[in-house]
């Protein structure tokens, strides 16, 4: 499996990462090697195997619908790079 520059750029866009041309080449090479390693998996017969997405088989616990809340606005906004009038600030968005 080899990954081309266009794919690297597309994936970087999806992941919201900016990549330099050198990085594109580097990622293409490294990811291709890693994916080659992964091709081994396709050789295992797995038609009847149930995918395993959790390490331990359990059912989801549910909590009661009770409000449990303190107004933490100031503490949380204090972590933000930029905040104003009780809001998190971001560059201008166009819908």
């Amino acid at each position: 499996m080899s990954i081309d520059a266009a794919t690297v750029k597309h994936v970087a866009t999806l992941a919201r990462l900016r990549v330099t041309p050198e990085e594109v080449a580097q990622y293409a090479e490294q990811l291709s090697r890693i994916l080659t390693l992964m091709e081994a998996l396709g050789r295992l017969p797995t038609e009847d195997v149930e995918p395993m997405s959790h390490a331990v088989a359990m059912a989801i616990p549910e909590r009661e619908d009770v409000v449990c809340h303190l107004n933490q606005r100031e503490a949380l906004l204090a972590c933000a790079p930029e905040s104003e009038h009780g809001h998190f600030c971001v560059p201008k968005m166009i819908e």
Binding site: I3, T7, V8, V11, A12, L14, A15, L17, Y27, L31, I34, L35, M38, L41, G42, L44, T46, V49, E50, P51, M52, S53
Partner: peptide
């Protein structure tokens, strides 16, 4: 990058789902 790629459209079954199956094995 790697994780985004293996989850992306067209590769999910080949990589992610297959890995989850092998995980069970």
């Amino acid at each position: 990058m790697l994780g985004t790629y293996v989850l992306s459209s067209g590769y999910y079954d080949a990589y992610y789902r297959q890995a989850q199956k092998v995980r069970r094995l």
